[in-house]
């Protein structure tokens, strides 16, 4: 792939998804676009990009952007974060939802890729007194990863990364060489193909939002826009989770719950502390 090819793909991804591709990712991009070139029956990635330059076909553009953005993920990624969610956050949110009257506990997995994060939350939800009250909405830009996520099928290698063996036995059936999440987990999750830069209000509001390892790759404008939209989708007392190593700082309506990227929305303005001193920026950008 030439530097011009890389810049071409980077620009497509920046324009359509607000994501910044670093120059050292050239190798990954070529690997990921290989299957798209084969599907299109063109001899290699340079020829694929040449075709796209000549005819900017929206469907093909989308496939290229989608393949480039494909994320590595695993079950219970960042174990300490899921421990905090399973031990305290979910039980507390479930109790609050039950007390609220409607009983529904709504969770958003933003940038869900092949679904491991959503299924991890679904498994933890089965530990609650009323798992049926949990409703998970999982959103991703890519239709291919979502198609895979929806089947609930995972390979031998995928189910051995981060997924404890007891959870595997409790929640999955072995089908030939793969493992499939059982129906009770699958029915908890609704898969939505959506760009996070688009209008998120149609998804409704949530008690728990996970948006991990997404914000850090966005342009500053896209970062602020997505974060603001997610904050707006938070119910009072909602918990938002960003990547443990990400530097996104939420607005003053949220306070950190420890060092792992979990933030809780304050119930009312009365709980909001006085504005931070001028020397400390209210918001740091990724």
């Amino acid at each position: 792939m030439t530097p011009a090819d890389l810049e071409f793909v980077a620009e497509l991804v920046r324009r359509h998804a607000g994501v910044v591709i670093r120059a050292d990712k050239a190798f990954f991009i070529e690997t990921r676009l290989g299957p798209v070139a084969r599907r299109e029956k063109v001899p290699g990635v340079p020829a694929l990009l040449e075709q796209l330059r000549r005819v900017p076909d929206p469907v093909l553009t989308r496939q290229v952007v989608e393949a480039t953005l494909m994320q590595e993920t695993s079950f219970f990624r960042d174990r300490a974060v899921f421990e905090q969610i399973g031990k305290t956050v979910l039980p507390e949110l479930a109790a609050a939802a039950a007390a609220r009257g409607d009983g529904r506990l709504r969770v958003l997995s933003a940038g869900c890729a092949t679904g491991q994060e959503a299924y991890s939350i679904a498994m933890q939800a089965t530990d609650l007194a009323a798992p049926a009250a949990v409703e998970i909405v999982a959103v991703d830009f890519g239709s291919y990863p979502l198609e895979k996520a929806r089947t609930g099928l995972f390979t031998h290698f995928e189910v051995q990364r981060g997924l404890p063996i007891r959870r595997l036995l409790a929640h999955f059936d072995k089908i030939d060489e793969n493992w499939r999440a059982r129906a009770d987990l699958r029915q908890m999750i609704q898969w939505v193909e959506l760009n996070l830069l688009d209008d998120l209000t149609r998804l409704g509001t949530f008690d728990l939002i996970l948006c991990r390892n997404v914000l850090g790759s966005l342009t500053p404008q896209a970062h602020d826009r997505v974060l603001a939209a997610l904050e707006a989708a938070c119910r009072p007392d909602a918990v938002m989770v960003v990547g443990a190593l990400e530097t996104s700082t939420l607005s003053a309506a949220f306070s950190p719950m420890g060092p792992r990227g979990l933030w809780r929305r304050r119930t009312s303005l009365a709980d909001t502390p006085a504005p931070a001193p001028a020397s400390a920026p209210a918001r740091t950008q990724a």
């Binding site: 174990r79 031998h156 290698f157 051995q160 990364r161 981060g162 404890p164 063996i165 007891r166 036995l169």
Partner: peptide
């Protein structure tokens, strides 16, 4: 597991899987 194994790795495996299970 019932005999007291803490975890279970299915072959074939790689270094990441062993590290993930040990963790």
């Amino acid at each position: 597991i019932d005999h007291g194994a803490a975890e279970y790795i299915m072959k074939p495996f790689d270094g990441d899987i062993i590290a993930s299970k040990f963790e």
